[in-house]
């Protein structure tokens, strides 16, 4: 499907979604609590069939956190970017997509480790890279580390 068709079909599914087409992929920006229903549709519906989650990450925009999911369909060869906005930066949480794409498990561990987003219904949420007792979430913009030597 082309970006236009994708946009049309997704608007039918989720009217609250907003779009950003400035880049190479179609970006869909949704509130975080709409994530799982949309993702399930994107995975299971034959015309979407996004079976390949190739990049899962997060961006800290200071006033909100943005989860970014890059999806690809191996069948239809189309890509899409789903961005879920998390407004509660004090205690951020979002549903895990581990049940849809298994690759999400470790990726979400990584995001939890570096951004501190708690994934609900995640089978084994743990700090992946840093020690258990590490204070703070390093990739947050407000992270301070007095040992860090700034250039």
């Amino acid at each position: 499907m082309t970006n236009e068709e994708l946009k049309y079909s997704i608007t039918e599914l989720l009217p609250v979604a907003t779009y950003d087409e400035s880049g190479e992929f179609l970006n869909i920006i949704i509130p975080s609590d709409e994530l799982i229903p949309l993702m399930k549709e994107l995975r299971s519906k034959k015309e979407f069939d996004f079976d390949y989650l190739f990049c899962l990450t997060c961006i800290d925009w200071k006033d909100h956190l943005m989860m970014v999911y890059h999806l690809l369909s191996k069948v239809h060869k189309h890509c899409i970017v789903v961005k879920a906005k998390i407004t509660d930066i004090q205690n951020p949480k979002i549903e895990s997509v581990n049940c849809i794409w298994k690759t999400a498990e470790l990726n979400e561990d990584e995001v939890y480790d570096l951004f501190g987003i708690r994934f609900l219904n995640h089978p084994n949420l743990r700090r992946l890279f840093l020690e258990e007792d590490w204070k703070g979430f390093p990739l947050r913009k407000n992270y301070v580390d007095e040992n860090m030597i700034k250039l």
Partner: peptide, 20 residues
């Protein structure tokens, strides 16, 4: 301003660089 994704095929698979 914007985000850019570029992928290449390394010897081990798909490397993606995602720049915001």
């Amino acid at each position: 301003k914007g985000d850019f994704y570029q992928r290449v095929e390394t010897a081990r698979g798909e490397l993606g660089v995602y720049i915001v």
